[in-house]
Amino acid sequence: MIQAFANPARFLSFSAWAWPFAGVAALILFAIGAPWALVFSPGDYQQGESVRIMYVHVPAAWWALGIYAFMGGASFVSLIWRHALADVAARAAAPIGAFYAGLCLVTGSLWGAPTWGTWWVWDARLTSMLILFLTYLGYLALHAAIDDEERAGRLAAVLCLAGLINLPIVHYSVEWWSTLHQGASLLRDGGAAIHPSMLGPLLTMAGAYAAAFAALLLANMRADVFRRRVEAARLRRARAS
């Protein structure tokens, strides 16, 4: 499995058809999911029409976490097996994950204003999503700050794994911290069972986000592999002349 992706040439021939395929899948899923979620699905009897933001917000939250877990896996592979493509994958996934995390924060805030009566609540979910967003930014900044790409990738991988340990600690810390403040009213949006009529559009949107991630990831990785090849070729030519 790892060996199969170790070879950049094999990756390029696989991704050449895989990334447009995933891109078309994302477009189709969005074309189905977006009208379904935003127009045809029922409004919530409590939250009214604002519940539709959830179809944008919840998949963004899922995949912001999912992409970070993916980066953690790629970083682990890059550190243990010194796999160049794993590093490329982690780096290519980071901006997409940061975008999903930012989208989750913005849409959550837009939803909170009419529903909770406030734009922001310091509960465990929101706080850990904010920390996750900052962790993404830190990862990207560290990668950008170090000139030697191999070293940048491996240092960012160490940071990514440390962040992977930190995130659950932050999450449970905020939860315990909230319970320490007895007086504060706790807002929990979990618990309530989701109505089946909402599940269809939600899962379609989640599928669309996943396909979009796959397409962008592969396209980013291809761009990165090509860029490295061009640089290597230039270096060779400069030495030959």
Partner: peptide, 22 residues
């Protein structure tokens, strides 16, 4: 992680603040 970066103050703040939260 940022030891080899020149003028890393802002970068280190960004990297470390998530660990300061708990």
């Amino acid at each position: 992680a940022a030891a080899s970066v020149k003028r890393a103050g802002v970068l280190i703040a960004l990297l470390v603040l998530p660990f300061f939260a708990p």
